[in-house]
Design a protein around this nucleic acid. Structure first.
Length: 492
RNA sequence: GGCGGCAUAGCCAAGUGGCUAAGGCAGCGGUCUGCAAAACCGUUAUUCACCGGUUCGAGUCCGGUUGCCGCCUCCA
């Protein structure tokens, strides 16, 4: 079984055949650095983070390029409003972006170029487009003539004629066709500018991605990605620019992630329902956020709500409960360093074999259009196998602990690709408890005092008082768990 | 108006024409426990919006109907 995934360009799942065997080049459209990132940015970053990690896991030598747009109308607007310049603004939000992504456990791409560092490449590209007759100059502006590129519309699946009817079209008399888009804009007063053959100006939005992908990945590369909203016009325009200039295919595969809705509404600034990554991470562990997103296939939309993210937290608890049980068993001190597969028999052998299948099942799921939801399903299957093994008459022996340690290794190795199960279980639960306490405003000392009182009641076998105290704690959202030696607690 | 997507149990969700339709959450019954919690076992879709067609065989392919949604404007 080899890797296959859906290609927006052909609207089919296709086998992945890279340009150069064993290598993979990916370009993903990054953020425009003018505001803090929201949960939608997190999803896009996470989806391509998983694709990046999985390609590496599958043995590819991956070059992953994700740009920052650091010059654009909104950045200029914000800079002018603050009396600063575009670099102050973009640097600030790139820094915020990196902090958010680091906290989410998103690996840094191989290369993160900025638009302003690639102006020369853009000018060269625009020059070529003018030379080849794909672009025209009007009063210091340069436009791309969409009618000249015969493949225009092939990604979004629409022809120029289709779009003209009933579409909301901006009226710009300089354009020959309403869908012509700007490659270079002459600068107005108070705007940053660079020298060009067409006078002082700045690049249009689309040209940067053509220039930077070409610089770092070549004329034709493997995968181009981004949010589904970018299909038109941004990615369509990139194709027109790049293929117009080089005469070669641009990206062979296009991958687009679906959107996040909030309470079943599209998340947008105008509705005022954007949810920042910082807000979400204040309320949930980063792995809960990852799990929440990866439980859905990357192309479908996800509805974010308090209930849906809370459910994801419960799911992560299930994983960490199992890891905790394994950890406790392994801490028992029985030596299993001399044990190997051939020593196993009976249930030990059976569980060992089942767990050994996990990486293959994981690969089968991920090879099929990066099906993280199915992969997670297989991980839950493993959880059930391990829990069944440890819950009934478990005896720590060299054999059984060897099996558990292998089970843990397999869980962690696939978890690592998804960016899950990276924490020590005790730390995970401790962080979760602190976070939940912070949200509820409960008093930890008060809780511990009640638990202590209950402990005394239990020791004197005063079950009525003990149960009364547990009900009291339960009413405050505290769930307690008695073990043979102690009592632990967590927030519901 | 144009283009595209989706519709699977109470909820979320995977399903690449063919063994019993993954998995999670919630519920119910049981095991364990002083009682709980967690965990385990069992149970919860003769059926995949509806109607027709192709096929030996369809949730999966084709056509139609209905209902949601997205894009066509900056947007991950």
């Amino acid at each position: 079984m080899s890797l296959r995934f859906y290609n927006t360009l052909t609207k089919k799942k296709e086998k992945f055949i890279p340009v150069k065997e064993g290598k993979a080049g990916i370009y993903v459209c990054g953020i425009t650095a003018y505001d803090v990132c929201h949960i939608g940015h997190a999803r896009s970053a996470l989806v391509f983070d998983i694709i990046y990690r999985y390609l590496k896991y599958a043995g590819y030598d991956v070059t992953y390029v994700k740009n920052f747009t650091d010059v654009d109308d909104k950045i200029i607007g914000k800079a002018n409003a603050e009396g600063s310049d575009i670099y102050d603004i973009s640097e600030r939000y790139i820094k915020e972006h990196n902090e958010d992504m680091d906290r989410l456990g998103v690996a840094r791409p191989t290369i993160t170029p900025k638009a302003t560092e690639n102006i020369k490449g853009m000018i060269r590209l625009i020059d070529t487009l003018i030379e080849k007759g794909f672009a025209y100059v009007v009063d210091g502006d340069v436009y791309y003539s969409v009618e000249k590129f015969k493949g225009y519309g092939k990604l979004s699946g629409r022809g120029l004629d289709d779009m003209l009817a009933g579409a909301r079209i901006d009226v710009d008399k300089k354009k020959k066709n309403p869908f012509d888009f700007v490659l270079w804009k002459s600068s107005k007063e108070g705007e940053p500018w660079w020298n060009s053959p067409w006078g002082r100006g700045r690049p249009g939005w689309h040209i940067e991605c053509s220039a930077m992908s070409q610089r770092f990945l070549g004329d034709t590369f493997d995968i181009h990605g981004g949010g589904e909203d970018l299909i038109f016009p941004h990615h369509e325009n990139e194709i027109a620019q790049s293929e117009g200039a080089t005469g070669k295919p641009f990206a062979n595969y296009w991958i687009h992630n679906g959107f996040i809705k909030v309470n079943d509404e599209k998340m947008s600034k105008s509705l005022g329902n954007t949810l920042t990554i910082k807000e979400v991470l204040a309320a949930y562990h980063p792995e809960v956020v990852r799990f929440f997103i990866l439980q859905n296939h990357y192309k479908s939309y996800i509805d974010f709500s308090d209930a849906s993210i809370a459910e994801a937290r419960v799911g992560m608890e299930r994983f960490y409960t199992t890891l905790k049980n394994i950890k406790d068993a392994l801490d028992d001190g029985v030596n299993f360093s001399d044990t190997s597969e051939k020593d196993l028999s009976g249930e030990d052998e059976e569980v060992f074999k089942k767990m050994k299948m996990l990486p293959d099942r994981f690969k089968e799921a991920m090879d099929d259009d990066f099906n993280t939801a199915r992969a997670i399903g297989y991980m839950f299957d493993s959880v059930r196998i391990i829990n069944g093994y440890t819950s009934k008459n478990f005896v720590p022996t060299g054999e059984s602990l060897f099996v558990l340690s292998e089970a843990k290794r397999h869980m962690k190795s696939v978890g690592k690709v998804l960016g899950l199960l990276l924490e020590d279980p005790d730390e995970y639960f401790e962080k979760d408890r602190k976070r939940e306490i912070g949200k509820s405003g409960l008093d930890v000392r008060e809780i511990e005092r009640l638990i202590d009182e209950r402990k005394n009641a239990r020791e004197s076998r005063d079950w009525d008082r003990a149960d009364e105290l547990r009900d009291l704690l339960s009413a405050r959202g505290i769930i307690i768990k008695d073990t043979s030696t102690s009592t632990t607690w967590k927030v519901k």
